[in-house]
Amino acid sequence: MQQLQILGHTIIGQISGLGRALLMLLSALFHMPNPRKGFPLLLNQLYSVGVLSLVIILVSGLFIGMVLALQGYTILVGYGAEASLGPMVALSLLRELGPVVSALLFAGRAGSALTAEIGLMKATEQLSSLEMMAVDPLRRVVAPRFWAGFISLPLLAAIFSAVGILGAHLVGVDWLGVDSGTFWSVMQAQVSFEKDILNGIIKSVVFAFVVTWIAVYKGYACEPTSEGISRATTSTVVQSSLLVLGLDFVLTALMFAN
């Protein structure tokens, strides 16, 4: 009985949490700040969410591309199929690693920062004080951050994949001696725009939505204390990472299993 009740309590708690998160998102999105005031806010957030994540994305993308090329080459060369290095790297990056790894890095780099920032604004009564000034914090604080994350992550994922492919070119072509023409042309022959690139972009758009939503909601709903903020930040990273990986499986099954 006791356990059953606890289970029920948890489930109800989860569902009402989801409902609150949905409500928050809807009111943030449907009460857009007017463009003249909203655009500078969005710009600022694009800077702190997007530009500041650029370095980690560039570096990780480069290294992952290089590692993929190195690993792939040693396997493919055994079959005399090193010409397929290009498509192997490109497809792994475009379909999986680009969207997923950049979403995970984004959750750690930008998502946690968003949660902590909004949570601290709540704890220091800045959100209350906005409300009392008749400025809706959902519009003023949450909406620009949400949009900035939603716009930034797909761009970051594309940058990640592109840099990764360049890294693979560096290792495969410049160091290991795969022919550059082969590298590109075999890749071009195998990579399809609609199937691979577009699907990858769709994935990263979905991840962007999920990660940013979790991040702003966790901050907005956190308990306004030090522990509350630290718990909210942790759960932003954990929950959005798990959700990204789970959704990735679902999306992959829908997109690529024909």
């Binding site: 009564e125 800045q126 209350s128 009392m132 000034m133 008749a134 400025v135």
Partner: peptide, 27 residues
């Protein structure tokens, strides 16, 4: 109406000047 919060609740991401200009700019 407006309220002076017990904690002050100044916006930490802007200068004192911008804090005070904030409600004027908003409304």
């Amino acid at each position: 109406m407006s309220m002076l919060f017990q904690s002050g609740a100044l916006f930490t991401d802007m200068s004192v000047y911008d804090n005070i200009a904030f409600p004027i700019r908003e409304h």
